[in-house]
């Protein structure tokens, strides 16, 4: 009898515990969500570069003020952002991995892909430039020299837009670097990868914005730049609501429209000028990706 009572009280105590947890979480969630309720939320899946450069800290408040939407910015690599879009876990994407984006569109996961802005990638490395790549063009030729010199190269290795670009350049160079001793993958974001490359005096591919933002603490210099292959192009994509009914389609459209509006494009043009002396991003709304860098 006693044992029976014990068993029952154990189960009931656990049930009470679960109910209490759930109640707490609801109360907490409800309290915190007072401002952004229901479909006033937008989940924006984007790349670390737009967050780490500080651009979104400027743009998101403008958008929220204008439209009343609440934007949940989830900064991940472009690869993960697109997986979130494919699963309907995000409403709108701001990404920079054109080949993967085209596949995403071909799969009808997204609608209305629009060009927003570009900047460029740079190949950075130690000032001593052991592989002698300074000024080499195209970028694939520089990569060939790094491979020939077996100079240490740090790769993001995280399926981000930068990682995709790096892989494309290796492919153009006709080299399969994976598994080589001089080729290491950090699996980290751009900022952290630059720090690792700086400590190890290795080469790496970086977007110019993140490099400029971190420059003063890095022992790395720009060695290759200005190649058309190094263009870094950002598109905004609305996740297809026909595939995922829970997607906030109106919010996604509002955000995408905002990103390509003349006013926002002006903000993008002037962003970073005061801090770095030159803009970090170049607005491109309405242009065609093929015409960039010509």
């Amino acid at each position: 009898m006693k044992r029976f009572l014990c068993g029952r009280s154990l189960v009931s105590a656990m049930c009470v515990g679960l109910v209490v947890t759930a109640a707490f979480c609801f109360v907490a969630a409800a309290g915190a969500q007072a401002a952004p309720a229901g479909q006033r939320n937008i989940i924006l899946a984007t790349t670390t570069s737009t967050q780490d450069s500080g651009l979104l800290d400027v743009l998101i408040p403008l958008f929220e003020k204008k439209t009343g939407y609440f934007v949940k910015t989830i900064a991940v690599g472009s690869g993960q952002a697109m997986v979130m879009g494919q699963k309907g876990e995000a409403d709108v994407l701001l990404v920079h991995s054109p080949d993967a984006e085209e596949k995403f569109m071909a799969g009808a996961y997204g609608v209305n892909r629009r060009l927003v802005m570009h900047n460029d990638f740079v190949v950075v490395g130690p000032a001593t430039d052991r592989a002698g790549i300074k000024g080499t063009r195209p970028a694939s030729a520089a990569f060939k020299r790094i491979a020939a010199g077996q100079a240490l190269f740090m790769s993001r290795g995280d399926n981000s837009g930068t990682d995709a670009k790096e892989k494309a350049i290796w492919k153009a160079a006709g080299i399969a670097p994976e598994g080589q001793k001089w080729y290491q993958q950090t699996g980290l974001g751009m900022g952290q990868t630059l720090n690792v490359a700086s400590e190890k005096q290795a080469y790496t591919l970086a977007d110019r914005g993140t490099y400029l933002a971190l420059k003063k603490r890095l022992d790395l210099v720009i060695l290759v730049e200005g190649d058309r292959d190094l263009l870094n192009i950002y598109h905004v994509i609305e996740v297809n609501p026909a595939k995922w009914p829970k997607v906030n389609a109106a919010g996604a459209t509002a955000f995408a429209d905002f990103m390509v509006s003349p006013e926002t494009q002006g903000v993008i043009r002037s962003f970073g000028v005061d801090k770095f002396g030159s803009p970090l991003f170049f607005p491109d709304a309405g242009k065609r990706a093929e015409d960039l860098g010509k």
Binding site: C25, A28, A29
Partner: peptide
């Protein structure tokens, strides 16, 4: 609808 909320962090 709890993902990316403080409630989810508490959980």
């Amino acid at each position: 609808g709890m993902l990316y909320t403080p409630g989810a962090m508490i959980l």
